[in-house]
């Protein structure tokens, strides 16, 4: 049940990305490129997601534990530090160059297109390399 629900959540996440055009790099770049023909539509993705998630997170905060685990794993860091700022800067450049952030890239890997798979491969290499260094 626990794992089935996790797979359903992953599938819903992907369906949400698909129907909101997040898997189309051209739409992402049209949203990020404020130069000529800015397309602000993707603001609504965040609005929709936060509109549903924020009340649930607020309720979860008051609950002692989730349904299928011993405890909530809330992020503990609170300080605005250099890794946060530098990491966000680096991520933004990669996102702006490609129109891919991690979720949509993993969904788009399903197309089997070689250039998309190259993006996913170097993304995973970057994640793994940095996690090894940080350990």
């Amino acid at each position: 049940m626990k794992l089935v629900l996790a797979a359903i959540a992953g599938a819903l996440f992907a369906i949400g990305l698909l129907i909101s055009d997040m898997t189309s790099p051209g739409r992402i770049v049209a949203f990020l490129d404020v130069g000529t023909a800015w397309d602000p539509t993707l603001m609504f993705v965040m609005a929709g997601a936060i509109g549903v998630y924020a009340p649930v997170a607020w309720i979860a905060r008051k609950r002692p534990r989730p349904l299928f685990a011993r405890a909530f794993h809330w992020p503990e860091a609170t300080t605005i530090d250099l890794p946060l700022l530098g990491g966000a800067m680096i991520f933004g450049v990669g996102w702006g160059l490609s129109g891919f952030c991690p979720g949509p890239a993993l969904v788009a890997a399903g197309t089997g297109r070689i250039d998309t798979l190259v993006f996913v491969a170097t993304m995973i290499a970057g994640i793994v390399a940095l996690r090894l260094v940080r350990r």
Binding site: C101, A105, G126
Partner: peptide, 10 residues
């Protein structure tokens, strides 16, 4: 870009 996204988000 993939490398930047992987390193940056981590």
């Amino acid at each position: 870009a993939g490398l930047l996204v992987g390193v940056g988000t981590t």
